[in-house]
Amino acid sequence: MQRFEYHRAADTAAAIALAARAPEPHYLGGGTNLVDLMRENIERPRTIIDVTALSSAIEARPDGGILIGAGAKNTAVAEHRAIRERFPMLARAILAGASAQIRNMATVGGNLLQRTRCYYFYDDAAHCNKRKPGTGCDAVEGFNRIHAILGASPSCVATHPSDMCVALAALDAIVHVEGPGGRRSLPFGAFHRLPGDRPDLETALGPAELITAVELPAGAAGLRSTYRKVRDRASYAFALVSVAAALRIEDGKLAEVRLALGGVAHKPWRAATAEAALRGKPAGADAFRAAAEAELAAARPLSGNAFKIELAKRTIAATLSELAGARP
């Protein structure tokens, strides 16, 4: 780990001001990903700005929406009664991630900024365009069983590792950020980037910009929803494929469907094609399978991960069927 200067920010403005002038700054939340990456010499900040003292409040609004401070711990979000009742998929997604110990440390803001678990990204001896732009990608023809099937580029086939973010994508969350240029809000789908030819750029955050809160709009509140994660062991592993799904059935028809996938792309993948295919259709296994087929039509397998296409289709269909069938 490279040496750094440590600062504990007393407020958001001070944090941003420091980040704007200090050499090679990095905000620090719970450290569950950053400290590991620093120890591996993959992240090499010279200035650490600890933002864990900033807002961790969770504010359940009367309209059904919820505002979550970026410093809120994963556990605090998952156990919050309003979140469990209004957005169960989010609670379940968080609980499917990592371990209880890590959820007790990790912040919401940090979760959005998790970096990929690609083996070659983590290994300094490997070629990786994300770690060192322009050096190539060892995953494209290497071990890529855990890699992307959607939205990848020849430069990078890594996936985003977060579970929470898959639910946030499905819920149309809003990311509130603040930087030297002031405050702005980003729709969740615009927060993470696809790799293109700059896989080192992962989010829409500008220099010194800090995530201050994540907002769950009222729109999806109260929908029947869940999160299903498929992985290589029963717990404590990253997703091969995960599905965040929510729906509302009226008169036997799908009045509302929200669907997002994890483990398949460089960013949490909102399955807009499948949603469009299902909206207004009668709920049923055939429709679910057809929608999954439509969503995965764009999938491109690598040498070792073709199974993910079928797995994603089946997991989508199984998750939607479970949600629809559970309806009285």
């Binding site: 620090l28 719970g30 400290v35």
Partner: peptide
Amino acid sequence: ERINACLALAVQ
């Protein structure tokens, strides 16, 4: 609360 001490910078 249980945490992983290996991922915790002591200073925090």
